[in-house]
Structure formats: C-alpha cells, structure tokens
C-alpha cells in the first residue's frame, strides 16, 4: 500500500492547471503559517487598529507607518492582514475538522463492517439519515444549537462531515472482511482489537485518506458559508468567509475592496484545494470516476 502511494505521488502532474493549483495551494499554506511575521498589522490586536482610518481605499497611507495595499474594512482593519489571519483560521478550522471527521468516520465505518448486525444497522441508519439531508443544513442546525466559537464551528463541521467517511470506509471494510486473510485471522483467534487495528484499518484507510483533501475544501466552503450567515467565528477574529460577509454590506456603497479581495482569496483557496484533492483521489483510487 505504502509503495503504491509513493509510486502514485511520484507520477508527473496532469496538465498545467494542476501544477498551478499545487503551487497556489503551497503558497496559501506558507502564507497562513507566516502570517504573524509578514502581515503589516495584527487585526486581532485593537491597539494596532486605527478606527478613524476605517473604509480607506487601497493604497492609503496608514498611521501604523505602512500602506493599506488593499484598503481597510469598516473598522479600520488592514485588508491584507485580515486576509492572512483569516486564512489561518479558515485552514485551521477546515483541516482540524476534516481530520477528526475522517478519524470518526473511519472508526464508525470499520466498526459497522466488522461487528455487523445491530451495530451496522444503527451506524448506517444514522449515516443514511444524515446523508439524506444536505450538509449545509446539518452544519447549520449543529452550529445554531452549539453556539458561536471556533471550537464549536469545528465540532459542527465534524458532525456535518463524518457520515461521508463512514459510508465510504464501511463499503471498503466490508469487502475486506470477506477476504480469506480475515477468516484466517479469526481462526487464529487473534484479539478483536488486533484484527481491527492491524488488518482491517490499514486496508480501509486509503479511501478515507483520499477523501480528506476534498473534504477540507468542502469544510472551507462550509465554514465560510456559516460565517457568512453570521453563525460562525467570533466577530473579532474573522475567518476569510466572515471577512467577505463583513464586506458584503459595503458592496453596494462602492467600497468593493472590503469583500472583493478576501472573496478572491477565498475562491482561489477553495479552487486550489479542490483541484489538488481531485487529483489525489484520481491517483489513489482508480475506481472512482471523476464526478
């Protein structure tokens, strides 16, 4: 398995758009990591924000001794800095939630496949139920019930996403349990935990892993949408989506920069994650058709 992953990742990239998207994605991650070092302003520190310079157009000289390259928002936050810091929150939220959701989905899927009977029925009923509703609604109800906060939004996204993993993993795990080596393991009376963790899990992990990049992309979009509806991150620590939402109300007034630039950054992020994610899935999972 490991060898295959290495082989697949080593393949030359498909088409020029993918190279671009890989570079863009890498740049996004680097920018997010380096944000505190390179952002001219810390938009979370009220002392660094000058309220009287709110809604300055791009290119205005600020009191902080730097130029507002992309202008300021309605509270005087530098848009460049807001994008960089917002990127951190968007990535933190989406990667954390996708990873935890994958873990939960993996466990649930493998358990359902291995134990079968009522465990399977219970888990898959829940999964079916949840997947019969659009993800956005599940996330919406979850965040409304949980309340605001970065930890809550991560939780809401996990709740919204685990079912997808569970269904995919169960399918694979089910076909694995039918294979001869599993019967052999059972006959050898290996402990259940050993069978699951040593045999079933490693063999079912690939489909879950291939899903992660795409689900991270979904998570970014979901978080942005929730924040846009005013249900997500705290107001003083906006993610990219929340920044776009804050700026949306200024769109009609001609202060386009408040939402346009963060919006473009967001779209670029989501697009590059998805393009890379699609590619990872296509390489790792030849069975999946590109739909």
């Amino acid at each position: 398995m490991k060898a295959e992953i290495i082989r697949v990742l080593g393949k030359p990239p498909y088409g020029p758009a993918l190279t671009v998207s890989k570079i863009v994605l890498a740049a996004y991650i680097l920018l997010a990591l380096a944000a505190p070092a390179i952002a001219p302003q810390n938009p979370y520190d009220p002392l660094q924000i000058y309220g009287w310079e709110a809604s300055s157009p791009p290119g205005t000289m600020g009191s902080g001794g730097y130029i507002y390259l992309l202008g300021t928002d309605g509270l005087g936050r530098d848009i460049v800095s807001t994008i960089l810091y917002g990127l951190r929150i968007s990535l933190l939220v989406s990667i954390t939630s996708a990873a935890i959701a994958a873990l939960i989905g993996l466990t649930a899927g493998v358990s359902a496949a291995y134990f079968g009977k009522w465990v399977d029925v219970a888990i898959m009923r829940l999964v079916d139920l949840q997947l019969s509703l659009p993800t956005i609604l599940v996330a919406l109800i979850a965040i409304v019930t949980l309340g605001p906060g970065i930890d809550r939004i991560i939780l809401a996204l996990i709740i919204a996403q685990w079912a997808t993993y569970a269904r995919v993993v169960r399918g694979v795990a089910l076909s694995e349990t039918g294979k001869p080596y599993m019967d052999a393991a059972r006959l050898m009376r290996l402990p259940t935990s050993r069978i699951i963790f040593r045999h079933l899990l490693p063999n079912s992990i690939a489909p879950a892993v291939t899903l992660i990049p795409i689900e991270v992309g979904h998570a970014v979009a979901l978080e942005a949408t929730l924040s846009f509806l005013g249900l997500g991150v705290p107001i003083d620590k906006p993610s990219l989506g929340a920044t776009v939402a804050n700026g949306f109300q200024y769109l009609l007034t001609g202060q386009y920069w408040i939402s346009l630039f963060p919006g473009l950054a967001l779209a670029g992020l989501i697009a590059s994650i998805n393009l890379v994610g699609e590619d990872v899935r296509r390489r790792l999972d030849p069975r999946s058709r590109s739909i």
């Binding site: 520190d45 009220p46 002392l47 705290p234 107001i235 003083d236």
Partner: peptide, 19 residues
C-alpha cells in the same frame, strides 16, 4: 462592540466582543 474594544484597549481594558 469592536470599535469600543479599540477605544478601551488604549487604557488597558482588554475587551472581547461577542455578538
């Protein structure tokens, strides 16, 4: 709430706004 947080920060009062 956020503008008040900016003002009060100048006298050392750290405000966490929540809406």
């Amino acid at each position: 709430l956020q503008a008040v947080a900016q003002s009060w920060a100048r006298i050392g009062v750290t405000v966490q706004p929540t809406a």
